[in-house]
Design a protein around this nucleic acid. Structure first.
Lengths: 398, 398
DNA sequence: CCATCTTTGTCCTGAGTCCGGAAAAAGTGT
DNA sequence: ACACTTTTTCCGGACTCAGGACAAAGATGG
C-alpha cells in the first residue's frame, strides 16, 4: 500500500498547506488575505497544488458581498499515523490532514520487550485501524519513544528505560514497513507539540510541558519550536536531584535523591504500597489486597474517595515536582506550564500543590502572569503531536 | 556627530556583511565560494554595498593560481560602541566593524545611582574614547544592563538590583544622546553573545553562559540564538532555591535558601568577613584590617596564597552552583557550559569544584561530552557582545 | 427585472531578476 | 612566448511576478 505523496515545491506552497492544516478549509480569497502574494501568483501556486493532488476544490464559499469564492481544502484522503510508545503502553491513532483523530487504539505493552515486538504490535494496531475503514494507506507517520532520540536520523540514543532500543534505526525500519515517510522524536516533545497544535498551548511561543508518567520528563518549546538540546536529551528532568547528601533516596539510575525517586508513576506506586502495608491507609490496603499491586490510578481513586494518606502522597509529590519546576521557571521564563501524562488523574490536588510550590519559590518577575494548567488533550496529545511532527516535515519545501 | 549609516537592502547583502564581520576581509572570489550566488548577482550586490559605503575595496588578494581577486572589507571607519553596565562598574569599549576592541575603559560605579547618573558617566567615557582618536563617531551602540529587559523596546522591567531603572527608556534615551541606533539587552546575554562571537563558544549551537558577579545569572543560547524567555527574564538563576525548608539562608529577595544567598560576589564577601572575624583565616583577617572590607578578589588572592579557609569557601560555593548547573544541564542539554563574570579570578579551584558536582549529579547522557570551561574573554566579553548585538541589528535587512 | 456596485478569478504585459555562457583581463608556470 | 587558470565583466535569454484590464458571479436597490 505504498503511496507516493507529493511535496510542496516551494515555501509558498508549504505555507498554504500549513494554513489549511491549522485553519481548516478556506476560500482562495481568504488565503489571499493571509499570505501576501499577488492574486496571480497565488492562483498559480494553488493550481499547482491542485495538480499534485495535495489539495482539492471543495465547493463555493459564502459570498462576502460579491462573487462567491471557491473553497480549497487539503485532500480528504490524506492520512497520518500517530504513534506514541509509552513505558507501559502503546497508542496508535489515524488522523486526516487537519490532524483530527479519526481512530485511536491503546494497548498495554512493556517497551522493554524491544523494538521488534513493539513494532509488530504497532503494525497490527495500524492494520486494525485500517480495517475499520478510516484509512486506506498512510501518507506519513510520526512516532514518539520514551527516551532521547538523535532527531535527524530518528534513532534512540542510550535510552535508560528501553535498553534494547539503543541505536535501533526506528525511522528507517518503520518507514520500510509502512512504506511512507516517518519522523521520530521523544514522546514528551510530541506531547508538547500536541498541546501546541490543538491544546492549551495554542498561540504560546515559549512553554514547558511536564509529563508525569512512569517517569518524569519535560518538553521544551522555545520561540515556537521544540528545543531538543545538543544531543537530543533536553528535558530529561527525572534525574535532577531534589534531595542532596547521602540521605537521598536511592534511584534506579544509580544516583541518590533524583526527582523520579520521589515522584512519578513508579515512585507513587511504591509509596502507596508502603502506606497500605504500614496501616496508614486502609483504603489503599484493601485495593492492594484486591489487585495484588497498586498504581498511580489507585492513589487517584483513593484520594478522590477522601483517603488522607493518598492525598498526602500527592501533596508531597507535588511539592517535590513543584520545587523542580520552580527552578526551571526561573531559568527558562516560560509563558505557560502544562502538566500532563498518565498521572493527570491526580488532577487538581496535584496541580494545587505544584502551584503553591512554584509561586512561593519563584520570583514574581517570572511568575507574574504564569498559568500552570493541566493538559487539555490527555492521551491523544502524544499521537496528535506525532501527526503534527510528520505533517510539519511533509508540509515543508522538498 | 550624527551619522546616517546605510543598511543592507536585502538578505544577500546582510549575509555578506556578516561574513565580512566574522571572517574579516575577504576576496570577491572567496565570498563567491561562501554564498551560493551566481557571479553576476554577487558582483551586483557587492557593487551596491560599495556604493553605500558599508564596504570598501582593499587591494588585491593573493593569487589562487590565476588572476588575482580584489579584496573587500567592511568600511574601516565604522565604529560600534559596546557598553556593559554591571552592578558595581561600567565598561565602555569602541570596536571596529569586525568587532575588534580598539579602546576600552572601566569605571567603578554603583548602578543604583540611577540611569541619569550612569548615562552621564557612560557618555563621558565615550567622549574620552573618542578623544583618543579611535573613533570620530559611532554607527551603533549596544548596551547591557544587570536585569531583565523587554527586548524589542529596550526597556528594563522590574529589575531587582536597579530599582530606579524600571521602565526607563534606555534605548530611546541613549539613541537620542548618541545619535545612532541602540540595542539593549541583559548583561548576561551579551556575555554569552561575546563568547559566542569571539570566545570559547564559537561554533557551539546550544550553550549556557553562567556569569558569577555580584549576583549570579545565566545566558542561554539555543539553536545559535540568545533565548530571552516569555518576558525577558530567562536565565535568572540567582534565586533558584538550593536549600529547602526554614533553615535556608535569608536572601535579599525575601525568600530563603536562594543560590545568591550562598554564592556570588556578595555572599562570598560576607562569608569571607565572617571567616576573618571568626579567626578561621588569619590571611583574610589581615586583609580585612587593611581594607576595612573584603571582596571576592580578596578571597581569590588569599586562596592562591594557600589560605585553606578561602579555598573552602570557594569549594563549598562551587558545589552550590554546581548543584544548580547540574539541574540545568539535565534540563537544557547544552553542548558547552561557560563560567564567567567577576569571580572568574577564583579560577580553577572553582571550576574543579563545579565540574565535580555536575559530573556527579547529571546523567552521562547529558554530560557525556560536556566541556565546562572558563570564559576566554574576561571583562571584554560583555562589550564585545554588546557590539555584536548592534551589529547583528544593523547587518540585517532594513 | 434592470442598473449599478462589489468581490473574485483570469489573462496579459511590462518590469525586473537572475543564471550561465562567452570573452576579456590578469596571472602563473614552463 | 605559449598554454593554462582564475577572476571579472558583459550580455542574452529564461524565468518570475506584480498589478491593470476585463470577465464572471453575486449583492443591492429601485
Amino acid at each position: 500500500m505504498r503511496r507516493m505523496t507529493a511535496r510542496p515545491a516551494n515555501a509558498h506552497q508549504a505555507r498554504l498547506l500549513r494554513l489549511l492544516r491549522d485553519g481548516g478549509p478556506n476560500s482562495r480569497a481568504q488565503l489571499g488575505d493571509l499570505v501576501d502574494l499577488s492574486r496571480s501568483k497565488l492562483a498559480v501556486e494553488i493550481d499547482r497544488l491542485l495538480e499534485t493532488g495535495l489539495v482539492v476544490a471543495d465547493g463555493l464559499a459564502a459570498s462576502r458581498g460579491g462573487r462567491r469564492s471557491h473553497n480549497i481544502r487539503l485532500a480528504p484522503g490524506l492520512r497520518f499515523l500517530g504513534i506514541d510508545i509509552g513505558a507501559t503502553s502503546v497508542d496508535v491513532a489515524v488522523t486526516n490532514a487537519e490532524l483530527e483523530v479519526l481512530g485511536h487504539l491503546n494497548q498495554p505493552m512493556d517497551v522493554r520487550e524491544g523494538p521488534v515486538a513493539v513494532f509488530e504490535q504497532v503494525l497490527s494496531m495500524a492494520a486494525k485501524l485500517r480495517a475499520t475503514g478510516v484509512a486506506e494507506g498512510f501518507d506519513g507517520a510520526g512516532i514518539g519513544v520514551p527516551g532521547p532520540v538523535r532527531f535527524p536520523e530518528g534513532v534512540p540514543v542510550a535510552p535508560p528505560i528501553m535498553p534494547g532500543w539503543d541505536g535501533f534505526p526506528v525511522r528507517e525500519a518503520l518507514s520500510q514497513e509502512l512504506g511512507c515517510p516517518v519522523m521520530v522524536d521523544n514522546d514528551v516533545n510530541l506531547m508538547a507539540l500536541g498541546e501546541q497544535h490543538a491544546g492549551v498551548a495554542r498561540s504560546v511561543q515559549d512553554f514547558l510541558c511536564v509529563k508525569i508518567g512512569t517517569g518524569v520528563g519535560c518538553g521544551i518549546v522555545a520561540g515556537g519550536e521544540v528545543y531538543r538540546g545538543a544531543t537530543g536529551s533536553a528535558g530529561d528532568i527525572g534525574h535532577i536531584q531534589v534531595e542532596h547528601g547521602s540521605q537521598g533516596r536511592q534511584c534506579a539510575c544509580g544516583n541518590r535523591g533524583c526527582l523520579e525517586a520521589y515522584f512519578g508513576g513508579a515512585a507513587l506506586a511504591r509509596d502507596a504500597e508502603e502506606a497500605a502495608r504500614d496501616g496508614r491507609s486502609p483504603e489503599l490496603a484493601s485495593r492492594l489486597e484486591a489487585a495484588g499491586r497498586l498504581t498511580a490510578a489507585d492513589v487517584a481513586a483513593a484520594a478522590s474517595a477522601g483517603d488522607t494518606a493518598s492525598l498526602d502522597l500527592i501533596r508531597v509529590g507535588g511539592n517535590r515536582i513543584g520545587q523542580v519546576i520552580a527552578g526551571l521557571v526561573s531559568f527558562f521564563n516560560p509563558g505557560l506550564v502544562v502538566i500532563g501524562g498518565g498521572v493527570t488523574g491526580l488532577g487538581h490536588t496535584l496541580l494545587a500543590s505544584i502551584r503553591t510550590q512554584v509561586y512561593r519559590q519563584s520570583l514574581p518577575l517570572a511568575t507574574g502572569n504564569l498559568p500552570i494548567v493541566l493538559g487539555e488533550l490527555g492521551p491523544v496529545a502524544g499521537v496528535i503531536g506525532a501527526a503534527r511532527l510528520i505533517s510539519d516535515h511533509l508540509f515543508s519545501p522538498a
